[in-house]
Design a protein around this nucleic acid. Structure first.
Lengths: 220, 220
DNA sequence: CGGGATCCGTTACGATACTG
DNA sequence: CAGTATCGTAACGGATCCCG
């Protein structure tokens, strides 16, 4: 049972940080934004977090009502965001936009799974989707599948496969990160590392537009 | 010289947290959003922060280019946000909106100055200002003065007095916090704790509209 | 007195090892 | 696989001192 440290200030910003201000907490929420996850999956994505800290943070998040734990078959726990936890997504989004202003340093490691980049993409996408855009995309990166839904001016990403998407987009992880981080222009990215299949040219065009918009947002 | 702890993850969200994720850092930025401040002023507002931690955080923020330190007369240092530091305001705003979802706990202390409530008000105000609103307000709370500028669909708050405002609004701290925290309805607040002087009834009406809008946003 | 620096006890973090 | 237990290290937090 983790002991609580609080700023004890009568101020909503302090209250928010009392819930999500601890080290790793916002990164855990970030990864859960891409859909429910198991303990080991979170640990892999958060490259380097100690198991006891992850336990600590998850318990606190559950206590505060941001996360729920479901025991599924074979005694495996699955953690997912509550509505309250989802409400933290705007914080994550602003952190992504702010962090994009800084150069990546050399001494970094690529995350252990796609959750972080999924959340970053959808965060940026939310800024530029128009009500006219309407498609679903199956994004497959080195075998990992994500499912993107764009409709009614909103964008949502889930960490799962799908067979009924409007289009299938295949690429590899480093190329996708380069796009996010700005090492590749959207055109270079598209030309070199992309495999896009769609029955509808219009939806393919919408998807490309979204992707270059994402890159633009993350560089502004 | 503080040693740096980094998540070392190739992800903009992690990079953001490497800059502003340490304890107290976002609260320092929050207070600086209300205008330049001296060391002791920050320490008073951040009720309870140790001097060495404040030094630590300020030095790191300066290193990262979010804050500048100006030596003014009599060797007093004044800290202010750079443009990059200002860019963190959206993060603060979202934290305020998220934190407003939680009940204030009993064991809290009121901040040592008005900076935190100033930032919270303007954060909420940004969400609801319309391009038609246009006024400046001198807000005086228990002797402390803030200056609010609303124009072109934006809202800005400075922590200073002014003589040329369109209207002068006087109240007391606890009543203002009650409004923010939801203990008072806007109507109760206005009836009981307010003193509003303005030569222009239209601008006074705009101000009241803004204030009740702020309360609404913080409760949504 | 304001702006720190130094010291030191306490708490949290982080790595590894271990258990059901 | 999903955590617990242990333990060294680093950060926090309170106090005191220092210097202009």
């Amino acid at each position: 049972m983790p002991k609580r440290r609080s700023y004890k200030l009568l101020c909503p910003i302090s209250r928010a940080l009392d819930r999500v201000g601890d080290r790793w907490t916002l990164l855990i929420l970030r990864d859960l934004l891409a859909g429910p996850a198991r303990f080991s999956e979170l640990q892999r994505g958060l490259n380097g977090i100690a198991a006891n800290l992850l336990t600590d943070r998850l318990m606190t998040l559950i206590e505060d009502g941001l996360v729920t734990q479901q025991e599924s078959a074979h005694r495996v726990s699955v953690y997912s965001l509550t509505d309250l936890g989802e409400a933290a997504s705007n914080i994550i989004l602003e952190l992504a936009l702010f962090g994009a202003r800084f150069e990546p340093v050399g001494d970094v490691v690529t995350p252990g799974n796609l959750r972080t980049v999924a959340t970053t993409i959808v965060a940026a996408a939310k800024r530029i989707v128009t009500p006219e855009m309407n498609f679903t995309a199956s994004i497959i990166v080195d075998g990992e599948a994500m499912f993107l839904t764009v409709m009614n001016g909103s964008a949502r990403m889930e960490y799962r496969g799908a067979t009924d998407a409007d289009l299938v987009f295949k690429t590899n992880y480093t190329a996708l990160l380069d796009l996010i981080e700005g090492a590749n222009s959207p055109e270079e990215f598209e030309a070199k590392h992309t495999q896009l299949e769609s029955k509808s040219p219009e939806k393919a065009a919408e998807f490309k537009e979204l992707l270059s918009g994402v890159a633009r947002v993350l560089r502004s």
